[in-house]
Structures are given as structure tokens and as C-alpha cells.
Amino acid sequence: MYPANFDYVRPSTVEEAVRLLAKHGDDAKLLAGGHSLIPAMKLRLARPKVVVDIGRIAHLSYIREAGGAIAIGAMTTHADVQASKTLRDKSPLLAETASHIGDVQVRNKGTIGGSLVHADPAADYPASILALDAEIDVVGPRGTRTIKAVDFFVDLLQTAVAADEIVTEIRVPATAKTVAYVKTEQKASGFALAGAAVVIGPNGVRVGITGVAAKAYRAAGVEKALAGQKLTPDLIARASAQASAGVDPLGDIHASPSFRAHLAQVNTRRALEQAVRRS
């Protein structure tokens, strides 16, 4: 399986990459870990004329504390997120989520920036990015801007990042240990049939759901039912029933819409129970 021919460029700075995207317009595609783009190019679902490899731009792979937040460079691999002591100590949800992605080899190449921008409806990070209320920095010809997680995912494989912009950094708040990600996976690929990410914080509970709808979403009904309440098993069970309320679940050969909706509720309940146990 060969992708169509393309020209290859490897900028060494973000500025150079932005210039290349501006110059080549729709003909160009960024290459990060390649673990979504290369499969798509092999199937000729993607046929960029110019591939801009951002894999060698210095200082795009890091995890560090910045104020009350933890900043993660866009080119940080899933393996590095999974192994990060800073994240495990200060904001463990993303590290836990990364450990669920694919397999060792996939985690060694795939990057957090690539996963978010690809916006696969069954990807794992989106649920946690939403539950953490993360911020995403993008750089483009019009300068730098910050996108809130709730505004990031727009539709199936679509985000608020413009074609000429590059994600450079993801920031997540420090959290307590009361977080969890619970997923039912599609056995062959490891992708999520339904995944629920939960953050229980001093100001309430946030729940992100992936795999179920065309884009990952915040389970507003669940969050509302839990607001200001003591998280008893009974309340958790009742609230979790709202996990797929108001969404249009996807169906395919792996899972019907009603099964996905059911899994969203079950995994939300399990994630909440898990997070409570960690307190």
C-alpha cells in the first residue's frame, strides 16, 4: 500500500512551518507522528501534494509546570504523556488516558497534538481534554490564539484549528487524584467504542465522553445532576443515565447506536465510582 507521491519538507521552527502552510494552502498537510495521516494516505483518503514534517521542530515536545497548570508540547508522544511523573503527580488523568491508546508502538509515535487535531470520534484524549477543561494554543499567520476545550471539537474529524494553523501547546489544570478514564475498546484497533473521563474537583464534576457521537462532548446532564451533591452510589447511578442524553450516537459494524449510548452510561458510572474511590 503506497501513498500517492508527495514533496517532503522538514521545517525546523514553528514560524517556518506556518510559512510553508501559508505558501502551499490546501495542498499541504502537517505530519506529526503519522499514525492517523499515513494510514489515511495509504488508503488515498488523504493525498497531500506537500507533507510538512514537524517532527524535528525543537521544543515542541515537553511536559512542564506553568503556574497552576501543566503545559504539554503538541509533539509530545502518547508514551511520554503516559510515563510523565509531572502529570502522574499533578494531573493524572491524561497519563491514565494515554495508557489506553493503541499499543506500545502506536504510543511511541503518536502525538497529543496530532490526536487532537485529527479529532477521530473514537480517540481517547478528547474525553479527558474536555473533562479537564484544557486550553489549546495554536499559531498561524494571524498570530497565536488560545482555544478552550469546549470550543475545540467542531464535528466529525473537524476542529476549530484552521488549515493554516499549528497546535503548539496543550495546558491542563493541576487536579486532585479524583479523576478516572474508563473505556470499552474496539478489540482490533483499541479505539474507544465509548470512553468516559471524569474530573471531580472542588467546584463540581466534569465529564467528557468520546466514541459515542460524531465528536466528543461534555455530558452536561450528568454534571448538572451531580452539582453540589454528595456523590453517593445511588446518585452516581441516576446521574450516569444522562450520559448520552441529547446526543445522536454513531452506529457501525462494531456497535449499534443504542449499544454505544448504553456503554456511555455504564462507563460514566464506572469512571465516577473509580474517581470517588481515589479520594
Binding site: 517532503y8 505530519l31 503519522g34 499514525h35 499515513i38 514534517d53 508502538q105 511511541n108 509515535k109
Partner: peptide, 11 residues
């Protein structure tokens, strides 16, 4: 460890 079918030689 990486899957060499999902990486270009140029990378």
C-alpha cells in the same frame, strides 16, 4: 519500538 509500515523512511 515502532511499526515500520507506518513511518516514512525520510522520517
Amino acid at each position: 519500538a515502532v511499526k515500520s509500515c507506518t513511518m516514512f523512511a525520510v522520517q
